[in-house]
Design a protein around this nucleic acid. Structure first.
Length: 496
RNA sequence: GGCGACGUAGCCAAGUGGUUAAGGCGGGGGUCUGCAAAACCCCUAUUCACCGGUUCGAAUCCGGUCGUCGCCUCCA
């Protein structure tokens, strides 16, 4: 398996330290709703992790929550609530988003919060001060960048070049403009913790060093995040961690996803041009969002577009249909060769997680299944493979089809409804089934106009009917209200 | 200004020395169907921004030109 490492700028053979892969992915600062740029990043690392698991690696996963920083304090002050309340609210909202996007979580995962890791953070800062890599000034503590000869190795730039850019600002108390804060003295009214340097709170970068050290040890296998974190965040993490432990590298493989673009610009909170994950989920299925993200390479930027999401929705529908296609009773024993697809899929994923090619393989497999279905060949093996790779590795839901009404009606849920485990109320399905039954009778009697009318009206309510050789398939794209069905039945003169 | 990425069909997007240049969406034609839908089949890039060069051979390597974007400040 080859993995692109930002540190070396090359694809490298993946060889973790042990059987268990130690993986750390930078989490969010919960001060607002997460947007689909976040979704992109977490979907990508989710798939990387799922693939590692499918290749029989164990993965020990840690993802932080930066629940204290300037933005949280400012925002909370504006809203008149405490920073802790604000952070809690948006952490919960983020967790809900991740759940609906089908992001894998294991019992053994750790999602540490900065505010709950203060002792470890102070321990690391104190260690850096002892070793001369950091110095207190004015109640804060700064990292002494010039003492780290490796500084800049991840972002591939020199200290001189950075100084020349004259972008480093503030900090009259700093020895060097490039030095960054490990510990920030608190201002009146701000939340604070006691420390050897006075009341204050942790700087942004230090929590990741402290948490990864505490939960994953001195050397990580994979450290991931968006490309916007390469500098300064990850550069600073390396500086802190390697200076503290004296061990290099802090992380064997640094993986960074490309950023989501929105029109001409990057989608970001500061530009205000964002679509939240919640808004996206209200319009598109989680599978569509995943296919949209995974259809291009994870290191390339991706531009958000309605057309792109709609195209992905159609694709998701296609995979879902193939994975739930009912087998013919007359299917011959001759099965198609699923193994070549499995091989192609793995080869794509082994090459730095080429999900675009992996998905293309699934589309080819779907075509084979449909073809086999048309020609009466057995395709159950191919179908299990499609479901396995789609669900377990790419994290798609590929909503299950359930056969109801004695095999006459195939029931499906698709589109955005699949984000939650939607249940169609009995009162609703009873009415829909009654309408289908009525339509079946109309068709038997060749009352085509009436049959078409029922189909059309149900479609307007988000219930799609399709006739097959064995009966009628019903797909719920939304759940109609009992009342709307009642009035439809009244209009058509059909009694329950 | 410094560092980096990218420019492949109507749109999205793989491919990075020799393959018929993946796949999805869209469009056109057909099969099936009462009609639809779905599915399947065929067609939709003689060509990979442009100009030179290396090579028996380049979308793929090198140089240049034009264009787009990211990072250098909080960000996934």
């Amino acid at each position: 398996m080859k993995v692109y490492n930002t540190l070396s700028g090359k694809k490298e053979e993946f060889s973790p330290q042990g059987k268990e892969v130690r993986m750390y992915v930078c989490g969010v600062t919960p001060y607002d709703e997460a947007h689909i740029g976040h979704a992109m990043s977490y979907i990508i690392f989710d798939v990387i992790r799922r693939y590692l698991r499918s290749q029989n690696y164990k993965v020990k996963y840690v993802q932080n929550v930066t629940d204290i920083d300037d933005k949280i304090i400012d925002r909370a002050a504006k809203l008149g609530i405490t920073p802790a309340e604000l952070a809690k609210k948006y952490t919960e909202s983020f967790d809900e988003d991740m759940k609906d996007l089908n992001i894998f979580r294991a019992e053994t995962d750790i999602y540490p919060r900065a505010t709950e890791e203060i002792p470890k953070i102070i321990e690391v800062i104190a260690g850096l001060v002892d070793k001369g890599f950091a110095y207190p000034a004015g109640g804060s503590v700064y990292f002494r960048v010039r003492n780290d000869p490796d500084y800049g190795k991840l972002s591939h730039r020199s200290l001189e070049a950075m100084r020349a850019a004259e972008c480093a600002v503030g900090g009259e108390e700093k020895e060097d403009a490039m030095d960054f804060a490990l510990w920030k003295a608190s201002k009146p009214g701000e939340p604070f913790w006691e420390s050897p340097w006075g009341e204050g709170r942790p700087g942004w970068h230090i929590e990741c060093s402290a948490m990864s050290l505490k939960y994953l040890g001195e050397t990580l296998d994979i450290h991931g995040g968006g490309q916007d974190l390469i500098f300064p965040h990850h550069e600073n993490e390396i500086a802190q961690s390697e200076s503290f432990t004296g061990k290099k590298p802090f992380a064997k493989y640094w993986m960074h996803n490309g950023l989501l673009q929105f029109g001409e610009d990057k989608m970001s909170k500061s530009l205000g041009n964002l679509i939240t994950i919640r808004e996206a989920l209200n319009r598109y299925s989680p599978d569509a969002i995943r296919i949209f993200v995974l259809s291009s390479h994870y290191r390339s930027p991706l531009t958000y577009s309605e057309e792109g999401l709609e195209a992905a929705e159609k694709g998701a529908e296609r995979l879902m249909r193939a994975s739930s296609l009912g087998g013919s009773k007359a299917a011959s024993a001759q099965a198609l060769d699923a193994e070549t697809y499995h091989k192609r899929f793995n080869e794509a994923m082994d090459d730095d997680f080429n999900t675009a090619q992996a998905i293309a393989t699934l589309f080819d497999l779907a075509r084979e299944i449909n073809e086999a279905g048309d020609s009466g060949l057995s395709f159950s093996k191919a179908q299990s493979l499609l479901a396995e790779l789609g669900r377990d590795v790419l994290g798609l839901k590929l909503p299950e089809t359930r056969i109801i009404s004695a095999g006459k009606v195939t029931f499906r849920i698709s589109g955005k409804l699949s984000a939650k485990s939607t249940v169609i109320p009995d009162t609703v399905s009873a009415r829909v089934n009654r309408l289908i039954e009525e339509r079946v009778n109309c068709r038997k009697e060749k009352k085509w106009q009436q049959a078409d009318e029922i189909r059309k009206k149900l479609a307007e309510l988000g219930v799609i009917l399709e006739d097959t050789q064995t009966g009628t398939d019903v797909t719920y794209k939304s759940v109609p209200s009992e009342e709307s069905l009642n009035s439809l039945m009244k209009e058509l003169g059909i009694a329950l």
